[in-house]
Simulated assay, not measured.
Amino acid sequence: MEDFKMKIALACDHGGYDLKMAIIAHLEKRGIEVMDLGTNNATDSVNYPEYGEAAALKVANGEADCGILVCGTGIGISLAANKVPGIRCAVVSDTFSARMTKAHNNANMLAMGGRVVGPGLALDIVDAYLDTEFEGGRHQTRVDMLMDIEKKYTK
């Protein structure tokens, strides 16, 4: 049987480029396959919704196991990702929230602000998120409720 190798979709705007590159290096050291969906520099201003959507589509269609997004605050790019059906993306600035968003909300994407968290904390947040398992149980009921809300308004 072949070993499972996790694949993560990463995307950022210009405000998150430097942090995205640090996260990519960290993930590769962990042996995780990275799908880098851009942007490719910190100097050219780009539109975060395009990058949030691109990564969210990779997660939603199963090409990636989960996704990590970075913009200046993490807010805008997470809002874009959350418009894609099936995506539960949380903006996180601490390790406790990173663990809880996976354990209780089964978030399939994580967003951070390149102008909010430094690289050391960001890598700890990534590890906390990736190393936490969804608890299921009563939390599954709540995640199902979230998805029912989405289905009700998605035609």
Rank of each mutant, 00 (worst) to 15 (best):
A42L: 10
M112S: 07
I68S: 10
L19T: 04
G118H: 14
G76H: 04
E53K: 14
V84T: 14
L123T: 10
T43P: 01
G76W: 02
M112V: 05
A42F: 01
L57A: 02
K83I: 01
A9R: 04
E63R: 12
C71R: 00
M35D: 01
E63C: 08
A54E: 00
A56L: 10
M21E: 15
N105V: 05
G113C: 09
A81H: 00
A56F: 01
C66E: 01
G52R: 01
V84G: 00
I87T: 04
V70R: 05
V91N: 14
E53V: 15
I75A: 09
V91C: 10
V117I: 13
F96P: 02
I77C: 06
A90C: 13
D127W: 01
H104R: 14
A56C: 12
A60F: 08
K83H: 06
G67Q: 06
A25W: 03
N40P: 03
L27A: 02
V70Q: 04
G67P: 08
V46Q: 08
G67T: 03
L57T: 06
V117T: 08
A107F: 06
M6H: 11
K58Q: 11
K5E: 14
E28T: 14
N61H: 13
L121G: 09
C89M: 12
Y48T: 03
A111C: 12
D127A: 08
S45P: 02
H104V: 04
D36H: 05
D18G: 08
K102V: 01
Y17V: 10
L69V: 07
K83T: 01
E53Y: 11
I75N: 12
N105W: 05
M21W: 01
D13P: 07
N105I: 06
L57F: 07
G15K: 00
Y17A: 10
D124M: 08
A56S: 07
D94Y: 04
N41Y: 11
G113F: 06
T39N: 13
M109C: 15
N105C: 09
P85A: 14
D94M: 11
G118C: 07
S97N: 13
G86R: 00
I75W: 09
D124Y: 02
L10T: 07
G113I: 04
E63H: 04
V116C: 10
L69K: 02
G31V: 09
Y48H: 09
A80F: 02
V117W: 03
D13S: 03
V92Q: 10
V59N: 00
A80Y: 01
N41I: 04
R99C: 07
I77D: 00
G114W: 00
M6A: 05
L37F: 03
L27S: 06
F96D: 10
V59I: 07
N61Q: 14
V34C: 13
L19R: 06
A22T: 13
A54L: 14
L121K: 12
